[in-house]
Design a protein around this nucleic acid. Structure first.
Lengths: 335, 335
DNA sequence: CTGAAAGCGCTAACAC
DNA sequence: GTGTTAGCGCTTTCAG
């Protein structure tokens, strides 16, 4: 495995000159040509480890996400990657499996490999970013905020999304709209439920909202069991707002087993349906802009990497118009 | 950001001793304790870049896959990760988007970052592994073989899978079984189609198999348009074998639009259905052991990293019993 | 514009 | 068992 010394020897120049050519620092055209030729001949690839050690920074961005099997996060990853590639960075994906220990490990790796920056969808509210912050490694939180730290964040307006979803169901003339949200200690779950609660209480003055609220695990099985639970109520809901994509799959599954698929019962899901078009028609989704979250997060991160030192920013993306799952019929958007 | 020199100074020992405790090389307990304490006090994290430069190898495995949005590959990734973690390695995921240039770029990064090894699902039949092989970086091909290189590979028996799928349809009394497979230059697509062709020609002596064979892009839209195309035939098929998970989503979508969902028309898909249970009942899947592929590939790779130098191995996993999509009814397995 | 030389932080001979 | 020291391959002052 050749080094710049061998390239230098072959080209008849100093290693410094080789380095300059490789890094686009002005060098006489004659030398530059010789160096390139020599590098080519030796099939030379610079050793990034050495470069990173010397420069104290690599051209790699770490993207740390909780669940690589959730299409929401993979779409987000695509967004990050597209943005990053365009700016000349490579991204490596790390899956925390919603576990704090794995998250901590990958954060440590990102630091000790001197990666250019990290984009993180925190696995919990207890992520420790002390080391990252104290070493001034650029970091942006995405989808979920970094509890307790003032770092850049790219989020969606979950409360508005919950509100929008619930209103759509009321427009569709449903009146007892239940809610299945995520784990109680996850910020996005709380927020989406809050949006629902607002609208619910306005429409059901003498019913305790909690009766129609269920917390589940943001996965398919959670949506299924929560839906089953709701349908056992003395006065079951006639519609339901499901706070993420995977749970809506489970909820639809459950309803289908009960022979009650939409539109006989109303459903709005928060988050686009994976491989939509196959699911029962009649359900509606509030669009969760996964890719855009990724693109924006990468853009912010790259600004930081390039030295932007302004105060931490939080950008909130809108969730927009629902669309009927399966039939792809447009719905009116909330103002 | 502290170095071992600072830790050494605080602990009153030499940097070499610090390095030794960090690496588990025997050191007097008294010193070891002092070093640990000093490291703790300074919140010391070893600089992996320097270590990698010196040792010429890191503890990171690169997993390079063509499509991070395909649930098959994310399941495979989970398998790799679980295996790797258990052996003390971290894995970083790289998405090539089925593009050779991105694949080449990530391979180059894996090498120049001196990663411990790479697991690769080649984007095409033209992957260049010269550099990897000549540097003796352990590599294992997964799902698709590394055309032209004798490296470890973990594959599935695609021909048998195609055969099994087609036989299931014949058992279900369908007689004109078409096939939608992947791109013509992708090995797995060829193989699955070959399995189908065998059975097709045995059953349809006077029909050219090609008339009922379509190549598509292994994605949802490809499955949709290929299905539409088949249904326009003068004598349309009464059943179809779809060679991957995503395309089967598209094909079902298409049939649904034509009001011809299974079981009125037969369908067997190669590869488990993402979020199955919502799709129309009646289709069957041939199980594609994604997670197992990943687990096995990681196991082989780790053996190589640990110095195993035997000849290249190819392990072929079986595809097994179909299961009805949606209703999860078991099918009999092929012997 | 170019070269010499000093490290980046760590590990691994090599002496003691 | 422990310290000294010489690099790993690259970039980057600093002279010229």
């Amino acid at each position: 495995m050749p080094t710049i010394y061998e390239v230098a020897a072959l080209a008849g120049v100093s290693p410094a000159t080789v380095s300059r050519v490789l890094n686009g620092v002005p060098v006489s055209p004659a030398y530059a040509a010789k160096v390139r030729q020599a590098a080519e001949a030796l099939n030379f690839t610079p050793n990034r480890t050495a470069r990173t050690l010397r420069r104290r920074s690599s051209e790699i961005i770490a993207l740390i996400i909780p669940d690589i099997e959730n299409p929401f996060f993979t779409a987000l990853a695509r967004g990050v990657e597209d943005s990053a590639q365009a700016a000349g960075y490579s991204v490596v994906l790390c899956n925390t499996d919603e576990r704090q220990d794995k998250e901590a490990k990958y954060l440590k790796i990102a630091l000790s490999e001197h990666m250019a920056g990290v984009i993180l969808a925190p696995a919990s509210n207890h992520t420790n970013l002390d080391a990252v912050v104290s070493r001034k490694t650029p970091v942006v939180a995405v989808d979920r905020s970094a509890h307790g730290y003032t770092v850049d964040a790219v989020l969606v307006d979950n409360v508005a999304g919950g509100r929008l979803a619930t209103r759509i169901l009321h427009q569709q003339k449903f009146s007892r709209v239940a809610c299945i949200t995520g784990p109680p200690d996850v910020e996005t779950a709380q927020e989406r439920a809050a949006g629902w609660r607002e609208v619910f209480t306005a429409h059901n003055v003498d019913t305790a909202a909690d009766e129609y609220l269920r917390f589940a695990n943001y996965r398919v099985d959670g949506g299924h069991s929560a839906m089953a639970d709701l349908m056992k109520l003395a006065e079951p809901p006639d519609a339901v707002f499901v706070a993420n994509n995977l749970m809506s799959v489970g909820a639809l599954q459950c309803l289908r087993e009960l022979r009650q698929a939409p539109p006989s019962i109303g459903m709005v899901a928060f988050g686009d349906h994976p491989f939509g078009g196959l699911t029962s028609a009649g359900a509606t989704v509030v669009h969760h802009p996964a890719r855009e979250l990724g693109v924006t997060a990468a853009a912010l991160l790259i600004e930081r990497i390039n030295g932007d030192a302004q105060a931490a920013r939080t950008v909130v993306l809108a969730t927009d118009a629902g669309r009927t799952i399966g039939d792809r019929v447009s719905q009116s958007s909330e103002s």
